[in-house]
Design a protein around this nucleic acid. Structure first.
Length: 476
RNA sequence: GACCCCAUCGUCUAUCGGUUAGGACUCCAGAUUUUCAUUCUGGCAAGAGGGGUUCAAUUCCCCUUGGGGUCGCCA
């Protein structure tokens, strides 16, 4: 058996779709698992949809996520170029070869003609397809019109009364009648190939063994098989993944909300969580394990455990999983990922020791990292005391608590967390007051709110100086 | 409309003929916590319907229903 070669073949439309990410992930994991090669190929055959910088974006996003390709742009593996726009002559050559063999033909029908044809077919109890009129043109007429410079495309000529049968790795046997298949355009009037031709030609020349793609391609697979066979090639294995669905159960798309991986990344979803979560949409490892790394996925991945049914992308569980990662990944790493949000909020995080403590405490309160500053703010922003709380804070009892702490804290500069814990528990004994009378003024003075982190941790993070400053601000 | 694919808690899923149908998210309750968050414990919640095959069907087959995909000179 030959070595596995798989490809991820996005079209550069500006961002990495969550569904594409999952496909890329399965490609990557499968290649790693099998000791195969993962190829990145850019399908930029639609000149009308080119988005500037999107290829760089895509490559950056994949790199950020840790999904490395073995061959592709900037990584020549001897099968390049990896941009379809740079392989045009190859597609044309095979399109002409197909014409020669009688498997394709020139078509001169205008857009208007085609629109009208479709309109006439609406309501018919049939599949809508091209009626094949140009396939019946005489050779002489074709030559004449070509010479005359008439705009034209090349269409595949699908045989009648035949059936295309193939075995999908996930779905098993699929059988489709050739009469249902349209004479699909393979070369557009601008000379560019359509997806169908380009993908088939490239898959062949790049020696792709397994085509892993979304289920939306299932019904056009016969066209691809037809092209492979007409060209005398052996088709690859087909692996059609279940679709990623929006909450309305339809194919996940931009208009249902965020589908760009980049936007999840910038909102503060960790790559570990995104990958873990997306992987689970359609696949699951043995047992009840739900949190796993890319490495673990590689060792356990198997198409036999990929589902057939589409999966709804429910962000609620992603939030939970992201929270799990925020809390369990190394503190320095989380601090690193959070930095940008703190800077955006304008917090002075030059004191790295304090910053780490803040992150360590705050990470318990968020499931999306961009929101970490909501909680962390209390450690960086001086509290505003509400008018309604002032009476309580200036009461003799409250003042006693605050001055108790100011007095003790002033003794030295460096308090350990244990010492602070001891101080706090000793304080409530020595002052002989109830919990509420004790903690309420401290919380209010510290944050302007009645709740907050436990006091020893709070004082440890804030530091002696800042703590005293906050207390003194409301002491008479 | 035609064709193709699919069908277990609200959601992601386990089960590859015999289970009290398991786990996770969400939600609810309790414990821990001065409070909040975290964490822990417990609870609610599912085999679309109808036929077969079988000693036995969620599991295999068929039909119905439901959902999705495709039907572009887009991928």
């Amino acid at each position: 058996m030959s070595k596995i070669r798989v490809r991820f073949a996005p079209s550069p439309t500006g961002y990495l779709h969550l569904g594409s990410l999952r496909t890329a992930l399965y490609d990557y994991v499968y290649a790693r698992k099998m000791g195969g090669t993962f190829v990145l190929r850019i399908e930029d055959t639609d000149q009308t949809r080119l988005v500037e910088d999107s290829v760089d974006n895509l490559i950056t996003s994949l790199a950020t996520l840790g999904i490395d390709y073995d061959e592709g742009p900037h990584k020549d593996g001897g099968f390049g170029p990896y941009f379809q726009s740079q392989r045009l002559p190859l597609y044309m050559k095979h399109a002409l070869e197909l014409i020669e063999k009688g498997h394709a033909y020139h078509c001169f029908c205008s857009k208007e003609t085609l629109d009208q044809m479709r309109e006439e077919q609406v309501g018919t109890h049939n599949n809508m397809k091209y009626d094949g009129r140009c396939s019946r043109l005489s050779k002489d007429e074709v030559t004449a019109r070509l010479l005359n410079g008439e705009p034209h495309v090349i269409r595949m000529k699908v045989p009648k009364h035949q059936s295309f049968v193939f075995d999908d790795i996930i779905r098993g046997r699929v059988d489709i009648e050739s009469d249902l298949i349209d004479d699909q355009v393979i070369i557009k009037s601008d000379g560019f190939p359509t997806y169908h031709l380009a993908a088939v030609v490239d898959d062949h020349y790049m020696e792709i063994t397994d085509v892993i793609r979304g289920e939306e391609w299932l019904s056009s697979t016969p066209k691809h098989i037809f092209l492979h066979e007409s060209l005398g090639w052996t088709p690859p294995h087909w692996v059609h993944l279940p679709l990623l669905l929006g909450t309305d159960r339809s194919k996940m798309s931009k208009r249902q909300g965020d589908v760009a991986v980049e936007s999840y990344l910038s909102k503060g979803y960790l790559k570990e969580a995104i990958i873990n979560f997306v992987a689970l949409l359609g696949w699951h490892p043995a047992g009840d394990k739900e949190i796993f790394s890319l490495e673990e996925m590689i060792s356990e991945f198997d198409f036999a455990h990929v589902n057939k049914a589409g999966a709804i992308f429910d962000v609620t569980k992603l939030d939970w999983m992201n929270g799990q990662y925020i809390r369990s990944l190394p503190l320095e790493y989380i601090a690193d990922c959070s930095r940008t949000y703190f800077l955006e909020a304008g917090f002075d995080i030059s004191d790295h020791g304090k910053y780490l403590k803040v992150v360590d405490k705050s990470r318990n309160y968020v499931s999306i990292l961009s929101l970490i500053t909501d909680y962390a703010a209390k450690f960086y922003i001086f509290p505003k005391i509400k008018e309604t709380d002032k009476d309580f804070l200036t009461s003799a009892s409250s003042q006693k608590v605050l001055s108790y702490f100011c007095d003790r804290l002033r003794i030295k500069y460096n308090w350990t967390k244990d010492e602070l814990a001891e101080l706090v528990s000793k304080g409530i004994e020595e002052l002989e007051i109830k919990g509420k009378q004790y903690y309420q003024p401290l919380n209010l003075a510290l944050w302007g709110e009645t709740s907050g982190p436990d006091i020893p941790t709070a004082l440890d993070i804030l530091g002696t100086e800042e703590t005293i400053k906050r207390f003194q601000a409301i002491m008479k």
